[in-house]
Design a protein around this nucleic acid. Sequence first.
DNA 1: TAGATTGTTAATCGATTAACAATC
DNA 2: TAGATTGTTAATCGATTAACAATC
Lengths: 227, 227
Amino acid sequence: MAAEPTEPNSQPDFPPGSAINPAIPPATVARLILYARELGRLRREGESHVSSKLLGQLLSVSDAVVRRDVSHLGSMGQRGVGYEIVPLIRQIRQTMGTNLSWKVALIGAGSLGHALLRYRGFDEQGFQLVAAFDTDPAICSRSIGGVPILPLDQLETTIATEGVTLAILAVPVDAADAVAKRLAASGVAGILNFAPRTLQKFPGVCVVNVDLASELQQLSFAVVSQK
Amino acid sequence: MAAEPTEPNSQPDFPPGSAINPAIPPATVARLILYARELGRLRREGESHVSSKLLGQLLSVSDAVVRRDVSHLGSMGQRGVGYEIVPLIRQIRQTMGTNLSWKVALIGAGSLGHALLRYRGFDEQGFQLVAAFDTDPAICSRSIGGVPILPLDQLETTIATEGVTLAILAVPVDAADAVAKRLAASGVAGILNFAPRTLQKFPGVCVVNVDLASELQQLSFAVVSQK
DNA sequence: TAGATTGTTAATCGATTAACAATC
DNA sequence: TAGATTGTTAATCGATTAACAATC
């Protein structure tokens, strides 16, 4: 089994990942992540407080939705004043688990894998890409974005020794299920799946799917249905 | 204004994009796209029919959800038999607008842009990448995945002459809003936005957002909340 | 006919909206 | 105090589930 993610900035007041309300609705989770993104921008612009009204405008949701969403984190605001940005970001990150430092492996260093290795956005959120894997010997033992590319043979041993807890799956669709099985057996707790296939389910392994072609289809539907 | 997408396989029985039920719920739309993906696989495996039960199992949803979703397309099944795969795929594609041939431009040919230019999944769904744009002269006038990379100056003229209707936005976050504005002014009907920012709204322009860092945060939340 | 499976209804569940008392 | 804004309640809206008559 792989190691637990470590906690760099100690937050003793709440057990990690458990919010006040034990079950946060999925729609709220998705929005909280976006609130944190916008709050980071406001903070960089020098703001210290924000109202539910303004935060809602930034994401095209109502102020009532923002308040309802944030209330899942406890009582974070001050009547008449709004929310203090820094504590709110911290509380969202703690609830999402992004206050932890996650070690991530990428499997499949094709063109999408290359792009993900160079993507700076993961690191900024506490996700540390520690290794990439590929079956093609021609690209192995190189390094991209500071991440070594290793032969797929070394998947299990590297996951164990590095303490990898999350995996990004960017292999061809026909290899996806077999690699997912090996990841599950290696004790990885979550898989971000870019292969356009519903993966087999493994107990204790969370999966989030990103299907680029599906997203473009969502867009074409939005266009044809708006008339 | 850019041209309308053309219709290669004429489907005279329904006006394009308009289903029997005028308003299909967003959750249903997302699933219909995934049904089509799995149906394509079943067809390639030689199947001619599928039941709501089997199709549901392939996507981890109940048979009742499948029937309810599909019923938005009209009466597609046969009691005691199930759904005929080929007509069901065709009807889903028509409803999603993917029976049309969409011309797509990519803006931002960095590492993510490169990967998207090489990605074969768009073409398979009727999305035709006709041009890419970048501000960096070093990579312009090259071609990647058969798609020419042009200087950003030529954005408006190329959209007009090629009849581009959709855009994939893969520029750095600080350039996103300015480029989106130019796309909207050029008559593009939809933007698939990879920049981690909520874009300004433009009338008549649909936006679908894909934020890779957010997806990874969704995953870490799923892991910490499953206990 | 008997078995299978759809299409749809009614009941349940969950999320959003509107409103407002509480309070900074 | 007066104005602003939260946190929460009740009402509305929408989606899912369970069940089953219709029918192939």
